[in-house]
Nucleic acid binder design. Structure first.
Lengths: 340, 340
DNA sequence: AGAAAAATGAGGTACGCACCTCAAAAAAGT
DNA sequence: ACTTTTTTGAGGTGCGTACCTCATTTTTCT
């Protein structure tokens, strides 16, 4: 049988009340008693029954995902996953909700974070671009005791803060590997398209991509990144011009998570099927495109896994447990038509 | 607040005892009362607090993984994952253990399964090759009330039984896609190696592989499967002969989960780096090989995810809940050097 | 109508823990 | 040695559920 607090009290030679004081950091415990208890914990291998503890505390975990208010398909998938997680965890006394915020306005995000109170919220998973204000607000959130997860976003990693997401250098390198291997003997140029290259993740992917192409596939020439600014007309214009000036484009790599605009623009001025196009994130659009062999590969991170991982981490932190590292590592998935 | 049994009793207009009788399938309940209770459950959205229930029942879940006793690296990884899961779930009143059985002997496996008692074991995850005896023993396990998961194995899927693993047709097709795309304009032959083609998963992978090569990359010729029977000397002999008779082998696909023997044999009679070699499962060996670019891609299923998934499913079934389908789907992962 | 059977309600105990009070003991300060 | 402060122990209550007993009511059967 697993030892209980009673066994622990007996083993430590103190009363239940003292054990309780030690376990829950209550005042008025002598060093000697504290030591006796911790020693006994080690000796008999006591672990608190979290279910019983939460029952007694009548605790419900409350977590929030702070996400951008853009409307792209990847974000929609995330929203769905959060809602699903909320449903499936409801029986677990875990409540998850969403706040969508204009991430274009770092000040607004910071203000929002400043309003969050630790008595009503246990943890926050934040997806927002790097910015000093937000960064600062996050540090202060942490200080107020709200557990923090940097979620899928191209932020610099804070100390003592968990991160859920992929290594974007590696993701870019993977794209480079695929495009390179598909064109081992064929010379040509690679078109790179991003929504904006201000985004940290796009920058990192680009670096990873360039590195492997230069090193392993130097017969390919990587063009400067085009920026669509999420504007279809602009995308069409600049991509069309690129194809005019570069007749030997043989591959396309879309850095950003919203592939729809760039891929549509490319399809209007080139024969997409004969190009080797690689994009990020599985969305209805990219899925359709890979089925039609317009995209040759998709590099993605499973949003469901990401959401669940963030929740598990916030929960572990709230319980003062360590998250299980191996489970929380988000893999860089590569999808072809066959393993969708 | 979440409704409790008390709220439920009040809402149904019956006593706590009657609610208890309904919830726990105890006798002596009139149809009318049963109906009143179930109606109230719907109306107020009652869900049993599982944590409290398990506390009251003092329940520990007990699950067992029945695995082959072969010593290959993939199996070792599985064993490690099960042990890790056992550690991390210990605080959850979940105990997981392992039985390793000579799967070469279906009779032995069936006998073993017959000894398992439902009062000491809640669920079993079985990894064993297809065989009528085993199949039968599994059905009877199910009848005795032990929850069953078909685990990563090339068995025909039983009705009313959960399966954890990948679609091997799709896995083979993915291998075909990779090899095909890497050699779009280059003619040549593809060497296929299996431990034995009796194994259901090897058969399925081969079919999936052939299908896509024939359809999309007909300039590649797929050779008949070689069988190593896990014997390095034999592997070397037959592979050497294959390379002698077929000078234009440009790719190698290893069907089985143990890639070490075939890949080593190939490396001794051909220049592995210049071939496009694809294998299954991430093991220390395949990882090393892909780092050295001897393997170009690995197709795998995350053993950690598989183990955790099996446990979650067995647990859900024991609680009479439905598993969360989306979370339990095992992805076909594709690894390159860059996204290891 | 009466007896037997079935259904119901009221109440208690337990699970492992958190949190509370109050009296008693031990330690610290004067 | 005395008072004050700190520490300790004993005990209780509640979280939401399972499981048990027993008396009482309702239904069913003859």
């Amino acid at each position: 049988m697993r030892p209980t607090v009673k066994d622990l009290a007996k083993a430590a030679g103190v009363s239940l009340a003292t054990v309780d004081r030690v376990l829950n950091d209550r005042p008025n415990v002598s060093k000697k008693s504290a030591r006796k208890v911790s020693e006994a914990i080690e000796r008999i291998g006591f672990t608190r029954n979290l279910a019983a503890a939460n029952l007694a505390k009548n605790k419900t975990y409350s977590f929030r995902f702070v996400l951008p208010d853009t409307g792209d398909q990847y974000l929609e998938a995330l929203l769905r996953q959060v809602e699903e997680a909320n449903r499936t965890h409801a029986s677990d006394h875990v409540v998850v909700d969403i706040a969508q915020i204009g991430v274009g306005d770092p000040h607004g995000v910071a203000n929002y974070l400043a309003t969050l109170e630790p008595d009503r919220l246990d943890g926050v998973a934040i997806m927002a671009p790097e910015s000093p204000q937000v960064r600062d607000a996050m540090v202060r959130l942490n200080e107020r005791g709200i557990k923090l997860v940097q979620f899928l976003s191209g932020q610099e990693k804070l100390d003592n803060t968990d991160f859920v997401g992929i290594d974007n250098f590696a993701a870019g390198a993977t794209a480079g590997r695929i495009i390179g291997q598909f064109h081992r003997q064929q010379q040509g140029r690679v078109l790179i398209i991003a929504e904006t290259i201000q985004a940290q993740d796009s920058i990192e992917r680009r670096i990873g991509f360039d590195r492997i192409i230069n090193e392993k596939f130097p017969h390919l020439e990587v063009l400067p990144s085009l920026e669509t600014y999420a504007d279809p007309a602009r995308a069409k214009r600049i991509i069309e011009r690129s194809f005019q000036f570069n007749k030997d484009i043989i591959a396309v790599y879309v850095l950003s998570s919203e592939a729809r605009i760039p891929i549509k623009a490319v399809s209007e001025c080139a024969d997409l099927e004969s190009l080797c196009a690689v994009a990020h994130e599985r969305t209805p659009f990219t899925e359709e495109a890979i089925r039609a062999e317009q995209l040759k590969a998709i590099i993605c991170q499973d949003p469901g896994h990401a959401v669940r991982s963030a929740i598990r981490i916030m929960r572990a932190r709230t319980d003062h447990r360590e998250p299980v590292v191996s489970q929380e590592k988000i893999r860089i998935e590569v999808l072809f038509k066959e393993n969708l």
